[in-house]
Each structure stands twice: as structure tokens, then as C-alpha cells.
Write a protein that binds this DNA or RNA. Sequence first.
DNA 1: CAGGTTCTCTACCAAGTGGTAGACGGACGC
DNA 2: GCGTCCGTCTACCACTTGGTAGAGAACCTG
Lengths: 197, 197
Amino acid sequence: MPERPTRDRILDEAVDLFGFRGVEAVSLDEIARAVGVRKQSLLYWFPSKEALVAAVLDTVADELVVVITAAIRASDDDPLVRIDAVIRAVFGPAVRRPALLGLVRELGRLDPELVERLRSRIAPLVEACVAYLESEMERGRLRRADPRLVAALAYATVTGIATEPEALETVGWSRDLAGLRRLRDELRGFIRAALAP
Amino acid sequence: MPERPTRDRILDEAVDLFGFRGVEAVSLDEIARAVGVRKQSLLYWFPSKEALVAAVLDTVADELVVVITAAIRASDDDPLVRIDAVIRAVFGPAVRRPALLGLVRELGRLDPELVERLRSRIAPLVEACVAYLESEMERGRLRRADPRLVAALAYATVTGIATEPEALETVGWSRDLAGLRRLRDELRGFIRAALAP
DNA sequence: CAGGTTCTCTACCAAGTGGTAGACGGACGC
DNA sequence: GCGTCCGTCTACCACTTGGTAGAGAACCTG
């Protein structure tokens, strides 16, 4: 019986609960119950709720940064192909664990100090992404536009669609394997068309 | 001193608080305090928190449906121009009152019964929108794709960008008048490129 | 074995949660 | 003047919140 360490199990459960229902809406008791431990054990590992939130954000940021940079490195020279690869890379974890991106959307509700810390963690990735978009626009391989806002818009499309199954159900989408593949392909087509020159 | 009726003031305040911070995270006491009244007066107008949430969703849905249908009716024959008009129409209220779309994003966390009620309210609009996209795709005036998923993707882009000022700030966007205009124009360009044939 | 460290636990606490019961006062038709 | 609504209020309820204090078990190291 390997049994993951308590601290990791707490983080796992917290990512899901915070991501799905919102940080403020989830109590320490609830997380502890999900882990199968008392609230006070949780407060042993993370001295306060805020500390737990900070730790959760750190792990999520790291995970996303790793996935995305790997996808960027591994892919083609053509920017549209490369962007495709990033979308595929993000789509997997996002669908497997919707709470991941759901957490990102919690940012607006969190302590600005925490937000700033997270921002500094992902800033290099964002800057690299913006610079890349800009250079490809210069070379005429992407549609000319404000690279910063285009980056934000593409991000909004991907996280929006991944975190709102309700919107998809409203247009009659079904969450099975075929549905997921269709969704991923439509998403790629949408972003590709939005960015193509 | 006209003084709006208490019930309306409660609804107003509830839209903002629920939209910004999440339904589960906002207490009745807090709403009552914001209105300047005791919690029990609030429970006089809405017999429970759930009833208040339902009323809030109704008013928001009505408001959005009115704005959107008006924009559709008033605009041109060219589908790209018409979609432009809808985006402009949604962008105004969304920026003036970010909580509006924020509330829409709360759907996944609410009682499924409430969600179903809201869905039935906006279903006609959604179906009309999908049918319209489909017919214009047939005529070759929009990019050929699954009209249902395209509708969801465009929705995700607009609400995503409107409800996540943090993402925009991360790419160095500033929330002044010029910034808003630039954002609106980039959003229109993005959606237009994504949908154009 | 002793003595410390690591971890989880029980027992509390003050403050806040959604909600009930019912008193108070003012406006109304009679 | 008199009852009767209407809207808001105080008082209270059982329960949950994030957090503190400290007991006790299981483990090392000597």
C-alpha cells in the first residue's frame, strides 16, 4: 500500500473542491472530510486557509507551466501548428481535471497579494508567448493584431469552453468521448481561424 | 426622493455580490447590510436564499435576452456585421456591470433545477442563434463548422474576456476608456476572423 | 529503555450561517 | 376612533466557520 502522503492528498482534494465550487464556498472541514482526516490535521500541514490556497495555486501554476512549455518545445515551426499543439496539450488536463482551469478563474476573487505571486510565476511564459505571437505577426504568418490582447482572447476561449460545460449542454453537446473529440477539433478550428493571416 | 422599492434594491445588490464573489460565498446578512436593511426584511421579500437566487437569475436572464434580441433585430443583413452588433450590445452591459456575466458563470455551481429553469428561458434565443449560424454557413457567408459548438465557443470568448480582468491585466492591459475601446475592437476582430468563411 | 520529533487526534472557542417567531409602528378603509 | 394589513424590526435557534490548545500515539535515535 503506497498511500500518498497526507499533505499531497489534501492538495489534490483542495484543487478539485476550490476549482469546482470556489475558494470561499469550500470549508476546511469539507476538504478534511474528503481526504478522510480531521480538520486539525489539515491545519497542521497548512497553518491557515490562506496558506492552503497559496499552496494550491502554486501547484496548479507549476503544472500548467510544465505542460505548456513542453508542448511549445516539442512542436513544429509553423505557428498555427504550434498553437494547435498547445491547445491539445491544455485540453487534455483541462478536461480530465476541470477544476484546474476553474481555479484559474477564481483569481478575481482572491487576495490580490496571492494573485500577484501567481502572476509573477507565470509572467515569463506569458511574455514569451506574446513575443512569439508578435514576431509571427511581423512575418505575416499570423493575422496582424495586438499580440497581448490576442493572447488574452485565445486564453479566454480555451478556459471559457473548458470550464463551462453548462453552456455546452445548452447547445445540445454531450460529454462523451466522441463529443470531447468533436469539441477539441472545433476549438482548434476556431482558434486557428481567429489567428490565421 | 424617489427611493427604489426595497425588493428591487435587494435584487440589485444581490446581482453584484453573487456575480462578483459567487452565490455560496455571499451571505444573506451581507446582502442585507449592503442594502441598508436587516436580514429579516430580506427574508420577508424572498422566503429563502434559494428563492432570492432564482429571482436574481430571472432578472439577469431577462435583461440579457432583451439586449441581445434588440441588437439582432436592429442590424444589417451581412452575418459578420450582425454578429458585430451583438458583441457591441453585450460588451456595453458586461463592462458596465461585470457581475452580470459573472453570474452566468455561476451556473455550474447552482442547483440543477434552477439551471434548468434558466436554460428554458434562454433556449429560444439559443436555438434561433444556432439556426441562424447554420443557415449562413449553408450560404457560404460563414466558415463551415458545427454551428452549435461555434455558438458556444463565441460565447465562451466573450464572457471569458469580460469576466476575467485579471487575465487582461497579466498581459498588461489597462482598464481605461482607451483600453476598453481597444479591447472591444480586438474582440470583434477575433470573433470576426474566427467566423469568416 | 529514555527522550525527542512527527503526526493526528479530541475538546474548545467566538463569530457567522440560514431560518423561525413574533413584536412594533405606521398607513389604510371604515 | 378602530381593526387590519404591510413592512421592518429584535430576539432567538441549531449549526457551521476558521482557528487555538494541548493530549496521545507512533516513530526514530541514543
